[in-house]
Design a protein around this nucleic acid. Structure first.
Length: 670
RNA sequence: GCUCCCGUAGCUCAGUUGGAUAGAGCGUUCGCCUCCUAAGUGAAAGGUCGCAAGUUCGAAUCUUGCCGGGAGCACCA
């Protein structure tokens, strides 16, 4: 019996009782976690709802407390309920049977559905995240996307969903073209020169994507006064899109090398992908033409013969009202016959949902250190052994920042218009706010701010300006800080171990930092805050888990087994412990640890990983208090010791799993 | 002009479907290591939940208006 099942059972009893006692059917029985342990473990405000409905139905005014009394009588027989209080104006506060609960949960799995995610036949959901333009290194804003997406994937898997992770590579877009213009026309380099450059950079320990970062910023500057250079951009872009020429080959090398760099950065943060679909294949395998045919045959797209959109194919949108300046219709094919990004995106979205009737070819791109393969699309024949089946997902989550809400809505509505049978629910835009820089952070990066900039609450990052905190730089700084701390604490540990601990801490700090904010909060990046290892941080959570684990390292292995056995066999003694002076404090930690599964569900329903991050922090905090107040190993009372051990074990398992679900590992020691 | 988001303690933020005395972290002040890791922990101070009206037994949460801040509304991606 886990908490979710127990809750459902109690809910069902309340629902049935409402029908039996008052002949009223309540569709949604609200249950809440009371704000304090004294108020019990589960609270129902159902009596308020019933009082309202009774009044509506019969005109008779009933006191919510009296209604609660009647419901209480019906619930008291349930075996897991110890007692029921009626509190305040009519709350039904349920107290679980603590000793029975502890006995059952002490060796139960915390996420019973997780194993379902490994099924190879179940329906699949797709999460697309990262999708950094492969023309420069990733910055902290990109990392927010990836960490959010990766954590959401982990949360989905924790609840038993089979998930495919895609990272879209826009290898034929203007951003890549800009860097290519830089290489060819500014630096006068050809492919062989760039390959040499890459080798030299590697020898010097400089990453290719860092080099491109600077080049991209330089191009941005050059464009402002060099019209001739700017005119090369369209030419280069055209050659890249067309393919099969030297410029396209050069661009492919630049993009692919950057993809490798970005994947390496992401792997530092335990972020990995299943598939890298590329824009070049969407073009060369004619995905758009196929989607275009479907749109035409289903009559959801029209050719404009007059007005300012004359010569364009547009998709009409009723939801957006047009005005003089802005049109309600979305152009998918330009008057020169080329397709817009949104058009390509609709075709790609159709493919993800298995609606296009065309497929990519695939080849193995890279095998991660943990043995996992990541595949990439190709226009040539597939190769590389057993190719998994990609796409054909029942739901697609696109992790994209909120600035792209409008094009995302077009994609979602577009696909739903073409395939009404699939509907809008199949496409979910997981939208989040941007990461901006505090003016202090921008200045720390060496950027001069105008007075106007300084007045603003934050400075927006810009790859084009080279203004941003590069992910690798930040991870490096976090690692260095962590390493210094680890070295002073564990001077005797081998260097490799200290290094590994520092890495784990740095990743935990960064991931938690990005996850503790809810999605629609703009993160104004500040170095001091991001580099902190104290207070509400990933490090705090890791530290609690480490301390919990260290208790079990010092206990005999048999202690845990014996404690569990004692708890099963002596419910009365256990109940006594919970009724003693600190009993409720111990209980509140144990019950919190048991709420992992329901927290995961809440996080999915709200598409909000921050809920799980907050939960981890609160659990860690509760454990610290517990740890501070109770000496576990030294406890002399057998029953109390067993309860303390079982509780500490429940917490460390729950906390470790919660953190793992956020992509945060717990080091051996720290 | 239209659409969306935000406004909660000095600062940065939580507050899940409307519920019990609005919570954290940082910062400030004063405490706690003979004891399982002090990256910890206790206490204090700090709030007209932007303003106003409405709905409700009940509003930080829902509705409307106003004020302030941000983003978007391309034949860019």
């Amino acid at each position: 019996m886990n908490l979710l099942k127990l809750q459902e059972q109690i809910r069902e009893t309340v629902r049935r009782s409402a029908v039996e006692l008052f002949d009223i059917e309540i569709e949604q029985i609200a249950a809440e976690v009371p704000p304090k342990t004294e108020f019990g473990d589960l609270a129902f405000p159902a009596a308020f709802e019933l009082a309202k409905q009774i009044k509506q139905k019969t005109g008779e005014k009933q006191n919510p407390r009296a209604i609660a009394e009647k419901l209480k009588a019906k619930l008291e027989d349930l075996i897991f309920i110890q007692k029921i209080d009626i509190a305040g104006p009519g709350y039904l506060n349920i107290f679980y049977n603590r000793s029975r609960f502890l006995a059952e949960s002490s060796d139960a799995g915390l996420l019973p559905n997780e194993s379902l995610s490994k099924s190879t036949t179940a329906k699949k959901v797709c999460v697309e995240h990262t999708s950094v333009n492969p023309n420069k290194s990733a910055h902290i804003g990109h990392i927010r996307n990836s960490v959010l997406g990766d954590s959401f994937v982990r949360i989905l898997k924790a609840s038993g969903k089979r998930v495919e992770i895609q990272n879209y590579i826009d290898n034929t877009g203007v951003q890549v073209a800009d860097v290519v213009v830089g290489f060819i026309h500014l630096l006068k380099m050809d492919l062989a020169d760039i390959e040499d450059l890459n080798e030299r950079l590697q020898a010097d320990g400089v990453s290719f994507d860092f080099y491109c970062w600077d080049l991209y910023a330089r191009i941005g500057q050059e464009y402002q006064h060099n019209e001739e250079l700017k005119s090369k951009r369209a030419e280069v872009l055209h050659l890249i899109e067309e393919g099969g020429n030297d410029t396209a080959k050069l661009a492919d090398f630049v993009a692919t090398t950057n993809v490798h760099c970005i994947l390496r950065t992401m792997e530092r943060l335990s972020i990995r992908y299943d598939l890298l679909p590329r824009e070049s294949e969407i073009l060369h395998l004619h995905f758009w033409q196929k989607a275009f045919e479907k749109m035409k045959s289903r009559g959801v797209i029209k050719f404009e013969t007059e007005g300012k959109n004359a010569g364009c194919w547009v998709m009409p949108f009723e939801s957006h009202t047009g005005n003089d300046e802005h049109d309600a219709d979305k152009i998918l094919v330009r008057s020169n016959g080329t397709v817009t990004y949104t058009g390509k995106d609709i075709a790609y979205q159709m493919w993800k949902l298995g609606l296009l009737g065309l497929d990519f070819n695939y080849k193995l791109f890279h095998t991660y250190e943990n043995g996992k393969d990541v595949w990439i699309t190709t226009a040539n024949e597939s190769f590389g052994g057993d190719i998994p089946q990609f796409g054909h997902c029942e739901t697609v989550y696109n992790v994209i920042d909120t600035r792209q809400s409008y094009p995302q809505e077009v994609v979602k509505k577009g696909v739903a218009t073409i395939f009404p049978e699939k509907g809008e629910d199949a496409s979910v835009h997981l939208s989040y706010e941007m990461v901006a820089l505090s003016s202090a952070a921008a200045e720390e990066l060496g950027f001069e701010l105008s007075d106007e900039d300084r007045k603003k609450p934050f400075v927006e990052m810009s790859g084009r300006k080279g203004l941003g905190v590069k992910a690798d730089d930040l991870i490096d700084r976090l690692e260095a800080n962590a390493l210094k701390e680890v070295e002073s604490r564990h001077p005797d540990a081998p260097h490799s171990e200290r290094k590994e601990i520092a890495t784990t801490i740095a990743v935990g700090a960064l991931r938690y930092f990005l996850l503790k904010f809810t999605k629609n909060t703009i993160i104004v990046f500040d170095f001091k805050e991001a580099l902190s290892f104290e207070g509400e941080t990933g490090v705090f959570c890791q530290y609690s888990a480490v301390r919990a684990n260290s208790i079990f390292r010092k206990l005999k292995e048999s202690d845990l087994v014996e404690s569990r056995q004692f708890i099963r066999q002596n419910p009365e003694s256990v109940a006594e412990v919970f009724e003693s002076e600190h009993g409720s404090d111990i209980w509140s930690v144990a019950i919190l640890a048991a709420r992992l599964e329901e927290t995961v569900e809440t996080a999915i329903n709200a598409s909000e990983p921050a809920i799980l991050a907050k939960y981890s922090f609160n659990l860690a905090k509760a454990f610290n208090l517990f740890y501070h107040n109770h000496k576990i190993i030294a406890e002399e009372n057998e029953a109390k010791r067993a309860v303390l051990i079982a509780t500490a074990d429940l917490v460390r398992r729950s906390l470790t799993t919660a953190l793992e679900t956020l992509g945060i590992k717990v080091p051996e020691k720290m």
